[in-house]
Computed example of a mutant assay.
Amino acid sequence: MTTRGRLVSKKNVEVQRENSTLYCENLNVTFDERDFNIQSLKATEKIHIIDKRDNLFSEAIGDRVTWDAKNKVTILRGQPFALLREGNRRQILVPRVLFYEDGKTVLCEGKGSLYERGEEKFPNLSTEETDLKVNWTKKMLYYDTLRKVSFFGESEATRGGQKLQGDQIDAYLDNDKNIHKIIATGNVHFFSKRLENSEGFGSLFTWDLAQDNALLTGNPKAELRKEGSQTFSEKVFFNMAENRVTWEGRPHWQIMSNETKRSNE
Rank of each mutant, 00 (worst) to 15 (best):
T2C: 05
R6A: 05
V8W: 10
S9N: 08
K11H: 13
N12F: 12
E14N: 13
Q16D: 15
E18R: 15
N19K: 13
S20P: 05
L27Q: 05
N28E: 11
F31Q: 02
D32Y: 05
D35L: 06
N37P: 03
S40N: 12
S40L: 03
A43Q: 06
K46T: 13
K46A: 15
I47D: 06
H48D: 13
I49P: 00
I50W: 10
I50N: 12
K52S: 13
K52I: 09
R53H: 11
D54T: 09
S58A: 15
E59S: 04
E59H: 12
W67S: 05
W67F: 14
N71A: 14
N71L: 09
I75W: 01
L76C: 15
P80C: 07
F81E: 08
A82S: 14
R85S: 13
N88R: 10
N88V: 12
Q91A: 08
V97E: 08
F99Y: 12
F99L: 14
V106F: 02
L107M: 13
K111M: 13
G112S: 10
S113I: 07
Y115N: 04
Y115M: 12
E116W: 01
R117S: 10
G118W: 06
G118C: 02
G118L: 01
K121R: 15
F122N: 00
F122Q: 01
S126L: 04
T127S: 10
E129V: 00
E129G: 06
T130L: 04
D131S: 11
D131R: 05
D131T: 10
L132D: 00
K133E: 00
N135Y: 11
T137Y: 12
T137G: 09
M140G: 08
L141A: 03
Y142N: 09
Y143Q: 12
T145N: 02
R147Y: 07
R147N: 00
S150T: 10
S150P: 01
F151V: 06
F152Y: 10
F152N: 03
F152I: 10
G153E: 09
G153V: 04
S155D: 01
A157Q: 05
R159V: 02
Q165K: 14
Q165M: 15
Q165D: 11
Q165S: 14
D174A: 12
N175F: 11
N178E: 04
H180R: 14
H180M: 15
A184M: 03
T185C: 03
G186Q: 07
N187P: 01
V188N: 04
F191H: 10
R194G: 09
L195E: 04
E196H: 14
S203E: 13
D208K: 01
L209R: 06
T217F: 03
T217R: 05
T217C: 05
N219F: 14
P220C: 08
L224A: 09
T231V: 13
F232L: 14
F232V: 05
S233P: 04
E234P: 03
V236N: 08
F237R: 02
F238T: 00
N239K: 06
N239Q: 10
N239S: 02
M240D: 09
N243E: 13
N243Q: 15
E248T: 07
R250M: 01
R250S: 00
R250Q: 02
P251A: 02
W253M: 03
I255K: 02
S257C: 01
T260R: 02
K261R: 08
K261F: 07
K261W: 06
S263N: 11
E265N: 12
